[in-house]
Computed example of a mutant assay.
Amino acid sequence: MNRRQFIISTSALAGTAALLPSTAFAGASMQAYTPGLIQKHLSAGRTVFVDYAASWCSTCARQERIISALRSANPAYDEALEFVRVDWDDYANHEVTKSRRIPRRSTLLVLKGDQELGRIVAGTQEAEIKALMDTGLQAATS
């Protein structure tokens, strides 16, 4: 393959990857929100990590990379928690957002029963996100 063909091919591939929704790179157990999904998990006694995100949001993308890396590094998160992504573009004005007073996309929550155990709004520090996930893990295993 000559240099010109290589550049054209790799540019086309990079452009295709940029068009894929960000959830294509998320962990296997990230669930797209549908009405009632979070409540279903909570009613079953599960601890739920909720990610309010938009595909175009750079802060959300950073959070997603950190969450994916933490989940890859510690399989206990996937065993203990239900991960649900709420698409901001679809649900910004929906009850799932309004009832929890979610101020903006890039908001992360941990829920168990009728309690909110923790929240991060627009935070992208790995230690902060890990602490929130650890809060969920501890609640799920206690």
Rank of each mutant, 00 (worst) to 15 (best):
R3Q: 15
I7N: 08
I8W: 02
S11G: 12
S11R: 05
A12V: 13
A17Y: 08
A18T: 14
L19N: 01
T23R: 08
A24P: 00
A28D: 14
S29L: 07
Q31H: 11
Q31G: 05
A32Y: 00
Y33I: 07
T34K: 14
A44E: 15
G45I: 12
T47L: 05
F49V: 05
D51P: 04
A54E: 10
C57D: 08
S58F: 04
T59M: 06
T59D: 12
A69L: 09
P75A: 02
A76L: 08
Y77C: 04
D78P: 04
E79A: 12
L81E: 12
E82V: 15
V84N: 13
V86W: 05
W88A: 05
D89F: 02
D90M: 06
A92L: 02
E95T: 04
T97R: 02
K98W: 07
S99W: 00
R100W: 04
R104Q: 13
V110E: 03
V110I: 13
G113W: 03
D114Y: 01
D114F: 04
E116H: 01
L117Y: 02
L117F: 10
L117E: 05
L117A: 07
G118I: 04
G118P: 01
G118L: 06
V121A: 09
V121Q: 11
G123C: 01
E128M: 08
K130S: 11
A131Y: 01
A131K: 14
A131D: 12
L132E: 05
T135G: 06
G136P: 09
Q138I: 12
